[in-house]
Nucleic acid binder design. Structure first.
Lengths: 246, 246
DNA sequence: AACATTCTAATGTCAGGACAAACTATTGAC
DNA sequence: GTCAATAGTTTGTCCTGACATTAGAATGTT
């Protein structure tokens, strides 16, 4: 078979060996060195070729299987999954997604306040009575075209937030700089009809379709950091994801 | 601390040890034995208590972290994250979801044919020219109320499908019985406005909001098995999921 | 009292080995 | 020639052991 994966493992690098393998195989699939549908060599030989132990090799493959790039079958082997299966939905913000895509998003801060959280928000963020939060609404545009209308509530005991930072940086960037390590988020995606408030802001007509998303994000200490309600123009945004059977 | 997790590991069971641990901890979180925010004992002690090796214990915890129930932090420990964080979106069908929920879904088969695939479907399922597929539209109701309008294309070289089976069983059930082991699916969720065809079938008015979902499912041999386009009434359905940072 | 240093506890990474289970393909029997 | 038993390949599970890295607490110094 002579796969010639051409992976180079740098044992002096701080990035873990299994992750170097993940990156290498991802790159090979992306550049077409590994064609969709082709079979990989077996784990043991691959590990031997790279001077790695099998557990390390397996850990790398586990990740690739989980992310939907590979499919394994006992007694048969490991295959590069077909094709145009896209990236899984990742824990990132809209701002990141757009930036990575080469677009240049801009943000209008429509309202901003530092106020006492009401009962619903306290429940969502698991805050005690009397706690204060940042509450703000933003309009995100890309290429001058409005794309999303976002309303968020953020706990105030992590880092200070002000209007100017929000206009220039994106919420998740601010929070990460403030030392927040996001770990997970639960979200709900649905649909609604644009109302008279939303329609002009999104430069569409009342009655057009919007994608809705509610999200609550948790950091590595288990705190609920942020909750929000976003709406997107259905003609310019949709959620893509890959589900993996376990 | 004396966690008293009260897990029992059955070494004679065919279910893997790490999975027994996963189930046990899931149950403990679900029943409230492990409270949200509480810290678990460290991996090594837990493994010792259950007479398991640390890698096995870690594998169990990895899964729980991935599913969003636990949060780990190096040098600190492992915490129950929960609260109302919901289940991740799983690779299952609407029929399964509803059945597991105690509801009793019914299905009307609106159209059914066994026809030659057009170019778009051949591309989505990666079929050669001239290949035939099953093509059908279904209306899914729960409690007599219409919920989803589904149009699907399924390759015909796996198992035979007929109208009667579709009306009584759910597509994924039929395919699983036919020997298909689903591995992953890529899907896209968006929104649209109900048109004159969809509205009466879903017993709503033209212009109301619908959630749209396009999905292509892949089995363990890497074959694209099924692709479809579904629309749901936005007032009765939304997609919930948990995203985990890696 | 404030600060830097050291220590400890916990998770993160990696190795090497052993056996089990599932699928494929070949071989053998009828 | 068809079908069943068998052997071989590959992934799945599990073990023991070791060291690295990080976060936070305790300690000591100024």
């Amino acid at each position: 078979m002579a796969n010639q994966l051409n992976l180079r493992i740098d044992r002096s690098s701080p990035v873990p060996l299994y992750h170097q393998v993940v990156q290498g195989i991802e790159a090979a699939i992306h550049t077409g060195v590994l064609e969709p549908g082709s079979r990989l060599e077996n784990e043991i030989d691959l590990a031997a070729q790279l001077n790695l132990s099998r557990p390390t090799m397996r850990k790398a493959m586990d990740e690739l299987v989980r992310s939907g790039l590979l499919v394994r079958k006992r007694g048969v082997g490991t295959q590069v999954v077909s094709s145009q299966v896209r990236r899984p939905l990742e824990l990132s913000s809209l701002y990141d997604d757009l930036s990575n895509n080469g677009s240049k998003p801009t943000t209008d801060v429509l309202s901003f306040s530092h106020e006492e959280a009401d009962a619903a928000i306290r429940k969502a963020l698991q805050l005690p009575a009397g706690a204060k939060v940042y509450h703000f609404a933003r309009l995100r545009k890309v290429g001058g075209k409005p794309l999303a209308l976002m309303e968020n509530w953020v706990r105030d005991d992590i880092t200070a937030i002000d209007e100017a930072a929000l206009a220039s940086q994106g919420l998740y960037g601010i929070l990460r700089n403030g030392g927040v390590n996001f770990r997970l988020a639960s979200q709900r995606i649905g649909a609604m009809i644009a109302n008279d408030y939303q329609a002009p802001l999104l430069e569409t007509t009342a009655g057009s379709a919007l994608v809705t998303m509610e999200r609550t994000a948790v950091d590595d200490t288990g705190r609920m950091v942020e909750t929000g309600h976003h709406v997107y123009r259905a003609d310019s945004y949709s959620f893509e994801m890959t589900l993996v059977q376990r």
